[in-house]
């Protein structure tokens, strides 16, 4: 299948007063057209930074210092500001964690839609744009009359659906969803993930679903990537990640998720906390927490290898 996105040796650094935070450290990653990729890791592992880098939305002092991000073969890192502006929204869309702060409280919902459309399509008729917005609301399962309401009049779940509608109105082919359900209740979360699956088929989207909870992406994702301390530690088909996790970090992460369907009286825990990315541990970043750490892990960084169809960075393989 065609790769919509190819990331090669990406380094993203945040220089701060006490040193440099290596938020993304030598990540190479490929995304196939039309797939749903779950990007999983703990807070501070670099998953959101990676998402922001793809859109060149990094906040200063964050900087891409090395590597390439090829979107349909074009390098986003080397694009001019104007080229990136054209790309954002119209080709690559992003939805954020908190739908309350991502909508402007002083704008009606239709104004949000119209502004988005007029920014990218000069000369679009207002009536036509409004029609499009109405159609979008229908495919989100919201009645079109609500276009004339303000964000505070909508519930949390609806606001998040409006966010995804704003993301999709210009028909992008890549959607980056950064923890879209964290602020939602379980039932609304389930509704939202169902909607996302529908929209993916309808608009033929490629989706990067960033989350800290592997359980959220289990049924939706085709493949899953696990990040730890700025490194991509394992990438594989979703089924395979759950059945046969190779990296010790993936194994630890999986066993700490509560599973309501299983009779397990106790959760397994993974001791320790994520590494300090200003002074990351030498060798494999996971070795201080790894139950299977060997001597080589403390000195040399493992390379990415292919094993049982997984891409895995670990000295065990």
């Amino acid at each position: 299948m065609h790769n919509i996105l190819e990331i090669e040796n990406l380094d993203v650094h945040f220089p701060i007063n006490i040193g440099t935070v290596r938020a993304v450290d030598g990540v190479s990653w490929k995304l196939r057209q039309g797939e749903v990729m779950g990007l999983v890791g703990e807070s501070g592992c670099g998953k959101s930074t990676l998402g922001f880098s793809i859109q060149r939305l990094l906040r200063p002092p964050g900087k891409i210092v090395n590597g390439r991000i090829l979107y349909h073969g074009q390098d986003i890192v080397r694009m001019t500001e104007k080229e990136v502006l054209d790309l954002r929204g119209s080709k690559i869309a992003m939805i954020f964690q908190d739908p309350l702060t991502s909508l402007n409280p002083l704008f009606r919902i239709d104004q949000h839609f119209l502004e988005t459309m007029f920014t990218h399509e000069k000369g679009l008729k207002k009536a036509e744009a409004f029609k499009k917005a109405e159609q979008m609301l229908e495919s989100l399962g919201i009645s079109p009359e609500r276009l004339l309401e303000y964000p505070h009049q909508l519930s949390g779940g609806m606001r998040q659906r409006i966010m995804i509608g704003l993301g999709l109105i210009l028909q992008p082919d890549l959607l980056i969803a950064d923890e879209p359900t964290t602020a939602l209740d379980v039932i609304v979360e389930a509704q939202f993930l169902d909607l996302l699956a529908d929209l993916q088929k309808k608009f033929n989207l490629t989706i990067i679903l960033i989350t800290h909870n592997l359980g959220n992406v289990a049924q939706l994702a085709d493949r899953i990537s696990v990040m730890y301390g700025g490194n991509m530690v394992e990438v594989a088909e979703a089924n395979s990640i759950f059945e046969n996790p190779l990296h010790p970090y993936t194994q630890g992460l999986l066993s700490s998720i509560p599973n309501i369907k299983l009779d397990q009286p106790k959760l397994k825990t993974m001791p320790g906390s994520p590494p300090d990315l200003v002074n990351p541990p030498p060798g494999c970043v996971f070795h201080p927490r790894c139950p299977q750490a060997m001597d080589v892990c403390k000195t040399k960084k493992p390379e990415t290898k292919t094993k049982d169809g997984h891409l895995v960075s670990c000295w065990l393989y």
Partner: peptide
């Protein structure tokens, strides 16, 4: 029953048996 059903299950092969309720609280 629906609350129990809506909980994300960390298993790609799992499929829901109860429908998720419409709308919000």
């Amino acid at each position: 029953a629906t609350l129990l059903e809506a909980v994300p299950v960390p298993d790609p092969k799992y499929r829901r048996t109860e429908p998720i309720p419409k709308g919000e609280i």
